[in-house]
Design a binder for these strands. Structure first.
Lengths: 194, 194
DNA sequence: ACCTGAACACCGTTCAAGT
DNA sequence: ACCTGAACACCGTTCAAGT
């Protein structure tokens, strides 16, 4: 595995020995995002990317060890862990609702990302960050660890299913009906509070 | 579009003029199911299938107009519309729960099918059949058409998300937590009954 | 009627070589 | 240090020809 974002992380002076790099990983991800937005996930390929960037497709292996590596960087770039103000005085169920709606909005706005989260191993710091945040909300509300992780699974199942269906625009999911189900789930969780 | 299952549907005597077919569509789907079960959806390809069947990959275009056509037949073959006995005296929410669990069991037992349902346009008689059945349950329970379709969206979002996550074995979904969320959703629907 | 190979336009990845 | 083309093992699909 390459050190991710090799060039971007270099805080030390750029005076290295040897041939200077043509690109840095950020530029590759930029180009990938542009293709994703314009033509969807299926159009994102090393070969396509390389012609867009004016390099050999093999050059990209200098920045990412594999296509999966690139896609993970794409996920990391494109969605932010929602900022939840822990100092908030709002009740936990309202905070939870707001965070879920925020994630939903982000994922729907970049079709393809939800698919990556489900399909690839869903590791990566975004997943861990969101997970930790939601677990915190549930534990602070009084759920046991076990109840909290089960509740989280339920919420993620619903969220990702809704996003997948909406973004592939089969019939079914409207934004309004997404809220409806989310309310059912959160009400259900509330009723199970010890 | 080819007439689906051309040979299989022929109830008239098989005496046709011209060269007899080497295969029929059922055999192709059989082979596709075998590959799906053994190696997953990504391994199902016209070329792979054709070597397995001992024909040119181009021969398969005589049975299916495109790969999407084949995949639709794969879905149709592999999952049955759950039999719901309308005469049942059980309350609607129990019937709904049972049907959802049945669909869940079927989809989990054949990883890849849920992905096809979401990704491809989700047309086809299986989807229509299940949809009609669940709508019936909800309408008979007293939901308006609007409420019923929204409820259905919510249930499908959850079901397909859960199956996708479980079959891709990211953390998250256990069969037990699937039931939990399903109960929340059905309880929510019940509480919204006019 | 039905089957076929060649060709086209794509993939990701390995390897050995070039600067 | 970094970049590159050739090669390998794959895709789906079109087309014109073969039986």
């Amino acid at each position: 595995m390459n050190v991710p974002y090799r060039s971007a992380m270099a805080a030390d002076p750029p005076a290295r020995r040897g041939r200077p790099a043509l690109l840095d990983a950020e530029q590759v991800v930029d180009a990938a995002v542009a293709i994703l937005d314009a033509e969807g996930l299926a159009a994102v390929s090393f070969r396509r990317l390389s012609t867009e960037l004016g390099v050999s497709h093999m050059t990209l292996y200098g920045y990412f060890d594999s296509k999966d590596d690139l896609l993970e960087a794409l996920v990391a770039r494109t969605i932010a862990v929602p900022a939840v103000r822990r100092s908030s005085t709002a009740p936990w169920d309202e905070v939870l609702l707001a965070v879920m709606l925020d994630i939903h909005r982000q994922l729907v706005s970049r079709p393809g990302i939800a698919e990556l989260l489900i399909t690839r191993e869903l590791t990566g710091e975004w997943v861990a960050g969101v997970r930790e945040q939601l677990l915190d909300i549930l534990r602070n509300a009084g759920f046991t660890q076990r109840r909290a992780t089960d509740g989280l699974s339920v919420l993620f199942n619903y969220l990702l299913g809704a996003v997948m269906i909406e973004t592939h625009r089969g019939r079914g999911g409207s934004a309004a009906s997404f809220r409806l189900g989310l309310r059912y789930l959160i009400d259900g969780l509330k009723s199970d509070l010890p």
